[in-house]
């Protein structure tokens, strides 16, 4: 059975903070940081936004594009490392808000930045086996970096939702391949507000090892080579890592440019790869083939080969695009940012 994407939707909050604004507070060299991370600014959620609200807006767009009855959704999975509750699934709020409830299975996923693609894989399995008709997979985050930490320049908010099914596909997912190992490159202990990371350790043994081996594994499994793809999307914790990974694997600058959003919105964690794919789907033509490789610290990578169908041209156009959300922005200063992201505790 063919399995793939019936519709997708995105959300990026309108608040932005520039690297200069953060660097000025912590005495950082803004130009050096921008060059090093290849990030200019990042998107941040407002006071009344969180992973659940991001998931709802993205999912409502995905439903509108797919044009399906939400009651036909048999599974809802939300991947995030910033679920609003420690205990109480975001997927329950989402299921109710989009009226997929009550007859459905649901759960929240956590796998650093790749929880959303893990949700896509689960839905592929459930749809492919005939257990459900449609599944909804969301990757969304309102990521936090500790004040003054390098992560503060990139940890951003945003998300994307994909409806996975087997009919009326706008894109077929032909294959997926994953690599997972126990790697302590990045973590956050229960009850701690900010994550910690292994500094330079996050590069070679974590990001590159997993992204490269998952992508290579997928290419081998599908008997495809980088030249067979029109686009490639890699997880983008900064602008440098995906560019280096692409080069090492033999993908060109032209193949990855369309799906690289980190420079303008930061690293949206579970949203990052899925937003990159959405940006490509906003533009791709029928027949185009897309390689997607997500990465999550801890660590693992999910790689996908996706081919766009004729249906995309009729289903696209009514829902807001990634660029629509990137275009609408309001810059805030560090003080406002601290308030929005609740980095100060207000006595109650």
């Amino acid at each position: 059975m063919k399995v793939g994407i019936c519709g997708y939707g995105v959300y990026i909050p309108r608040f932005r903070i520039r690297v200069e604004e953060i660097a000025a507070i912590w005495g950082g060299d803004a130009e050096g940081i921008k060059r090093g991370l290849q990030v200019q600014e990042k998107a941040i959620a407002g006071l009344d936004e969180d992973t659940a609200t991001i998931a709802v807006e993205a999912s409502r767009s995905a439903l509108a594009m797919a044009g399906i009855d939400p009651a036909d959704i048999g599974a809802v999975y939300v991947g995030s490392e910033s679920h609003p509750y420690a205990v109480k699934p975001t997927a329950t709020i989402l299921g109710d808000a989009i009226e997929a409830s009550p007859v459905m299975t649901a759960a929240d996923y956590e796998f650093a930045c790749k929880a959303g693609t893990a949700a896509i894989q689960t839905c592929m399995g459930l749809v492919g086996s005939g257990m459900i008709r449609y599944g909804l997979a969301v990757g969304a985050d309102t990521a936090q970096g500790a004040p003054g930490d390098t992560l503060e320049y990139t940890a951003a908010s945003g998300g994307a939702a994909y409806i996975i099914g087997s009919t009326e596909l706008i894109a077929e997912i032909e294959a997926t391949y994953s690599v997972t190992t126990d790697t302590p490159d990045f973590w956050r202990r229960e009850g701690e507000p900010y994550p910690r990371h292994g500094g330079r350790f996050t590069g070679s043994p974590a990001y590159f090892k997993h992204v490269l081996s998952a992508t290579t594994g997928l290419l081998k499994k599908t008997n495809l080579s980088p030249g067979d793809f029109d686009y490639a999307v890699f997880h983008q914790p900064n602008g440098k890592f995906p560019r280096t990974a692409a080069k090492n694997l033999g993908f060109t600058k032209e193949q990855i440019e369309c799906g690289l959003l980190v420079e303008r919105i930061g690293n949206t964690y579970s949203g990052a790869t899925m937003l990159g794919l959405a940006r490509v789907l906003d533009e791709a033509k029928p027949g185009d083939r897309i390689l997607v490789t997500a990465f999550g610290s801890g660590a693992g990578s999910d790689s996908f080969s996706i081919t766009v169908t004729d249906k995309i041209t009729e289903k696209r156009g009514e829902t807001p695009t990634v660029e629509d959300y990137i275009r609408e922005k309001k810059y805030v200063d560090y003080g406002t940012y601290v308030k929005l992201r609740r980095k100060i505790v207000v006595p109650s």
């Binding site: 006071l47 009344d48 936004e49 969180d50 659940a52 609200t53 709802v56 807006e57 409502r60 808000a97």
Partner: peptide, 8 residues
């Protein structure tokens, strides 16, 4: 105006 899902 249009509706939007937010934290109340």
């Amino acid at each position: 105006v249009e509706g939007v899902f937010r934290k109340i």
